[in-house]
Design a protein around this nucleic acid. Structure first.
Lengths: 180, 180
DNA sequence: AACCGTTTTTGATCTAGATCAAAAGAAACC
DNA sequence: GGTTTCTTTTGATCTAGATCAAAAACGGTT
């Protein structure tokens, strides 16, 4: 999820256009309903991304240090985002505004290519999650989360993780307790 | 899902590199386990894309006339695909080989940009499907399928549609019968 | 260390949809 | 046109996980 910054030279030429931003624990970074205006490179901290469906908050992504955060549905299309992002820890980011990024896409050599590859990564990640929901049991999804993101278990409230995994908090709690 | 061909000039400059290919009903177009070598612009016909998970075939995409088909997980990354694609009707496509497309990415102005936008579209579609699985009932998924793809109901065997919708064939049949 | 709000666990019950099994309809084939 | 094979429907039962409800555990705060 961070290949857009996979090239050191490219990152260097972006840095001069970036701002540093700080967010307190609990602070909303971008709100659903507005057009996403910035892309963030997270230096330190942890963010959850969620949306509302059938009256519930569904957590669809966690982004932490050294990862990239953006409202993909909005930032690249210009439509209002359905996602809200919120800092779960004190968080520090470099941010790049949409207008700067558009300028960069037009003027920095190789940027479209990195944009394309960034999208391919995001897509692959989503395919994984889709398949896990369709063909794995709650237990299996938990196991696979533990393999890939075990560090988050101690940094994120259980309810957010359970919604990320597509199950109720009670179910996740029970799965966890019968482990040992 | 066809924005890569959204630009007439671009399509024109691609055409000279393309082949015409025909597939009989039931014919396998690309097989899981190999690296996807071609991207297809479907002129006529219908294709299902599926993969195996827990011993079952799961249908994840239908592509029909005027749409684009490719093993996104493989074609752009060079890894073997997990997807098999099969013609459900006699199907006619323009195809463009990976090596040609790479050449095009390097030599045709604006191609990276179209690749990026193509990925954004594919991503948006997948987000829709993911959300529908997580937050909608079987009935609601069926309803939404009927709104967006009602034509497919008469062209595709029920079992493929039910697996696309993430439910058993019996369930889909029952939902359909209680409609009227 | 006692209080209060939040998060997690535990228990009891319920239900959408899966699974198993078989019948009924459609297509394909000789 | 009748037999075989594939597809869809119908019926009966079962289960993973949801829902509802309450108790326990965990911080912070004064």
């Amino acid at each position: 999820m961070n290949s857009i910054f996979g090239s050191p030279e490219l990152l260097e030429s972006l840095k001069e256009h970036m701002q540093i931003e700080q967010f307190a624990k609990g602070e909303i970074i971008e709100q659903a309903g507005v057009v996403s205006k910035r892309i963030f490179f997270i230096k330190k901290g942890l963010i959850r991304v969620f949306y509302r469906a059938s009256g519930k908050e569904i957590c669809c992504h966690f982004a932490k240090e050294n990862e990239v955060l953006t409202g993909i549905d909005s930032f690249f299309t210009g439509k209002p985002t359905i996602y809200t992002s919120q800092a779960l820890e004190p968080t520090e980011c470099y941010s790049l505004s949409k207008s700067k990024l558009d300028w960069v896409f037009d003027h920095v050599e190789g940027m479209d290519r990195y944009g394309r590859i960034f999208m391919i990564d995001a897509y692959s990640e989503l395919v994984e999650r889709y398949n896990s929901i369709v063909s794995m049991s709650a237990q299996e999804r938990y196991d696979s989360f533990m393999v890939n993101h075990s560090d988050l278990l101690n940094r994120v409230p259980l309810g957010y993780i359970s919604s990320y995994l597509g199950m109720q908090q009670e179910t996740l709690s029970r799965i966890r307790s019968r482990q040992n």
